[in-house]
Structures are given as structure tokens and as C-alpha cells.
Design a protein around this nucleic acid. Structure first.
Lengths: 227, 227
DNA sequence: TAGATTGTTAATCGATTAACAATC
DNA sequence: TAGATTGTTAATCGATTAACAATC
């Protein structure tokens, strides 16, 4: 990586692969903390996260030096350090477009609050759904019509697309036009967006296909236990 | 990769990264086919899939030679070839444990049938939900009690865990004990399983955190447009 | 001091990319 | 033939791993 551009914020580039694992560590650390465990070794934490200890130590070493040789990591301190580093402490506002079964499931999802996210808006087109109140963590949010999308999106940083496939691209375009640059999509279609907008797409069917194929290709497990 | 073991089924190992992209190509090809487009170039197909054309050609080259130089790929032939190769033609049976909002969303998901999956069972603990009939694609499936898990699992190859976090590991253990070796989990916790069992976990909160962080780290887009 | 465990090094492995010869 | 596009090569890049010196 050597895209020098700009006065460069020194923070030595952390590998993508590492970033994608950090939330998992965070989650395990929360479990440990809740269980009253105060210290953990890289071997233990790694096993609970489904990675090797070498990989875990390498990952953490990119963020800094948070452990004590001969002892391990302080659960609470490491958790705070990673959370700070990821920027989880400063919650991001989320708008969900499409309040069907999936939208409801997402709204009800307890993990959001803990992960530093706050649902600030729910949008749908169905007259039967518009106006209904949905419990999102502690808050009660009223479902608003599609016409209000721009207004609501203006208050959010993240847009979640949980609409049918056919409407996904249109919704995506409107979200981007309203200033959203982070989109999580559950529609089984590739969304094209302007440069600078980050899209992460989850397609259940694709996930199942990958899973099914992996098994077929490795009939005699090569270590198994995945995250 | 050189894990020689066993009489080795020659089929030259295809890279994991390639396998994970194949379902996306498949999906775009379906769109093209439905739109009546019969031929597509690697540049076009790649753009619609969110990858570079070099990567696409390299990926396809691992499966075989399905294009025509100077012309491109026949949409229908390439689709059939990839589908055959992935083994999508022979549908896999799925049991979903946990029929809350997420379970319902999964059951209603149209993409499953097209992707070569068939839902054969729904399990829940809630007396209000047990006995209810849910439309899964064409089929109507009745939600059965947790006690029936082993019976239903015996008829399935894939288990989907859509229960609350607290029950996930227990359900996972029972699925594995019942002979399931492919598990897709939506519980935000790491599941430990015996070697040979493949687990793929999707945690919405983790997905959002990765998304949010990516944006923070690349303030001036480095190409953007992701799959 | 002896035992334990981190943080880092260097070697290996796998994935991406650009370029182009082969060929329609 | 001229133009287009594949399939493959070789170079680059990034991620994983094992081993160990540093240090509690």
C-alpha cells in the first residue's frame, strides 16, 4: 500500500483482514468481562474467537502494545482500547429502509446498541406498515413513508437496505443523494454507487452456496472450526 | 496448497477467494439471461459484479475454459457451467431453527429456491409460533417444537441458526449431533464445533462495524464500488 | 531465578494485477 | 485481414505462520 496522496495521517495502515476480525475480538472480550474474567492470554482469546494465537497477536500488534509479557491482556483495558480504536464509542445513526420481516429483525436486534449504532429512522412503502411503532432497543420508532427518506437520511450516517431486490438500486441512489456514504444491503443484487460510497452486501443465498461448496471441496476437514 | 493426504481427487484446488465470488457471477448471469442478453464480455460481466475483468477471467480460468476469444462468454452456457461446477443443480435441504422475525425473513426469502436450497423444516420453542404454517417459496411448512429438532435435522444437510444468542451453542450442538455438518449462524457469538463441521457466521453488528471503520480509514475513496 | 507470554521477525503462502500471446 | 477478447504468464502485493528474543 503506497497511496501517498494527501498529507497522510501517519496512522500506519492496518490490514483489511485485521480490521475485519477486530469486532469479533471485541465481542468475545465483552463475554469475558461479563463473566468476571479480568485477564486473558492470546492463546485463550484466540481459541474463543476462532483464530490462531499468532494471528491474534499480529492483529493486536498493528494497533499498539496492549498486553503484558508473561501475563496476558487485561480484558477491560483491551476491550476499551479496541473499541476506541474502531471508534465504536461514538455511536453512528442508522436508517433502515424496508420494514418487512428482515427490517423488523434488524430493528429488534439487540447487538446494535452495544456495537455503537442507533436506529434513527424506519422507512417503508406499505400503507399497512407506515405509522406503526417499532421497538428499536430502548427507543420507539415510527415507520415513515418513502417520501420522508431524504429527511430521515439527513440525520443518519448509515443506510440499511432491507427492501425487495427490485427496489434496492433506487433506494440506494436516493440514500446516496441524501448524503449517506455507508450502505449495508441485504438485497441479492450488486449495487452500483459513486466512488467514495462504501457498500457491504449480504446475500443469504450466496452465503449458503459458499458454505455448501466448502464442505464439498474439503471432505476431510482441514482444521475446521471457523468464525 | 499441498495437503496431499488421501488418493487426492485431482480437481486442481480452486482458490477460496474465487469460490466466494462465483455465486455473485451466477447471480449477475441470471439477470442478464432474464434480460435477454446472450453474450457478455469479461469487462462487462466484471463491472456488473463489482470486480476487475482480470480477476474475473482468472477466476473463470480455474474452472475451465468457457469463453470464446474475440467474442466473450455465452450467458446461458456460462451460467450452467458455473452452476454445475458449484453443484447448485442438486438442491440441498435446509432446517431453520428459530422462527422469529429473522427466521420468517429467511423462510420468505425468494433467493433460496433459485440458489439450490429447499427449506424442509422450521423449529421454534415459542408455543404461540409452534403449529403455525409459513410459506417457504412454494411449500407450506409447519413450525415444529424443539423436541422435533433431531427428527427434522435428519432430513436436512444444512442448519440455519436464527435463535437468540443464548441458545445458539446448544442448538448448534444438537444439530451437529443429529448429523448436520453445514451451519449458517446469525447469532452474534462464536460457535465451537467438532472438526469437519463448517460454520459460517453472520453478525449484523460486526458487518456494520467493518463498514463504518472502512469509511473512516479511507476518507478519499480508493476506487470504491464494492460487492 | 524459572516459567509464561507478549511483540516482532523472517519465511511461506495465497491472491491480485498488468500485460500479452493466442485465437476467434 | 483487422479488431476484439480470452486464457495465461510473471511480477507484485498482502496475509499467515512458526519461531523466538524480549520481558514480565
Amino acid at each position: 500500500m503506497s497511496l501517498h496522496i494527501a498529507p497522510s495521517r501517519a496512522r500506519a495502515q492496518v490490514p483489511t483482514a485485521t480490521i475485519e476480525r477486530l469486532p469479533a475480538y471485541l465481542h468475545v472480550l465483552e463475554h469475558l468481562r461479563d463473566a468476571g474474567i479480568t485477564t486473558v492470554s492470546s492463546v485463550d482469546l484466540a481459541a474463543r474467537s476462532g483464530v490462531t494465537s499468532a494471528k491474534l497477536r499480529k492483529d493486536l500488534s498493528h494497533l499498539g502494545s496492549y498486553g503484558t509479557r508473561g501475563v496476558g491482556y487485561d480484558v477491560d483495558f483491551l476491550h476499551r482500547s479496541i473499541a476506541d480504536w474502531l471508534g465504536v464509542r461514538q455511536p453512528l445513526d442508522v436508517v433502515i429502509v424496508g420494514v418487512g420481516n428482515l427490517g423488523h429483525a434488524l430493528a429488534a436486534y439487540r447487538g446494535f446498541a452495544g456495537g455503537g449504532f442507533r436506529i434513527v429512522g424506519l422507512i417503508d412503502v406499505d400503507p399497512d406498515v407506515i405509522g406503526r411503532t417499532v421497538a428499536c432497543g430502548d427507543a420507539l420508532i415510527t415507520v415513515r413513508p418513502l417520501a420522508d427518506l431524504e429527511f430521515i437520511a439527513g440525520r443518519a450516517q448509515i443506510g440499511v437496505i432491507a427492501t425487495p431486490d427490485a427496489s434496492a438500486q433506487a433506494v440506494c441512489d436516493r440514500l446516496v443523494a441524501a448524503g449517506i456514504s455507508l450502505i449495508l444491503s441485504f438485497a441479492p443484487r450488486f449495487l452500483s454507487v459513486a466512488p467514495g460510497v462504501e457498500v457491504r452486501a449480504i446475500d443469504m443465498s450466496v452465503e449458503l452456496q459458499i458454505l455448501a461448496f466448502r464442505q464439498r471441496q474439503t471432505p476431510l476437514s482441514a482444521g475446521a472450526v471457523s468464525a
